[in-house]
Amino acid sequence: MKVSNVPFKGTKEQEAKLLEVIAQYKDQKGALMPIMQEAQEIYGYLPYQVQKIISDQTGIPIEKIYGVATFYAQFSMSPKGKYVVSVCLGTACYVKGSGNVLEEVEKVLGISDGECTPDGKFSIETCRCVGACGLAPVMIVGGDVYGKMTPDMVAGILAKYE
């Protein structure tokens, strides 16, 4: 799991909401999963600062929280960027070379799959089939779909979102 180097921008309101959630579940058995799920709803991801609040409030060691966060794919330790870049790794896209497209995206943005650029602008998420196999390989940037992608198209497309 890659830990984000995007500065934490949690608000007082978010923290108040999280504390409310923790108070609600605190003394229940198996409280950790729902707390973590709701914390991710509130913040969009689970950075150190959020896991620390959960740990300090519940007495659950932060390592235990981190262990759970890194075990389940549903939890993210990286915020979503302003523009989410999705590269489809479904079978059709993959055999048409989407692996190379992803590699190029990672190279251009200087981050890996699941991470967010330090300026908070882009994050990369791979996905499995978006139902547009005729356009394979497919890349989606901030909701805009780009078909028949080649690696040399990547830099130009991303530049439009600068």
Binding site: M1, Q51, P61, E63, Y66, G67, F71
Partner: peptide, 17 residues
Amino acid sequence: VIGANERGFDTYIGSAF
């Protein structure tokens, strides 16, 4: 302060973050 992080082949024992 130590526990299992990640899963499958990537699993290792270490501390939070």
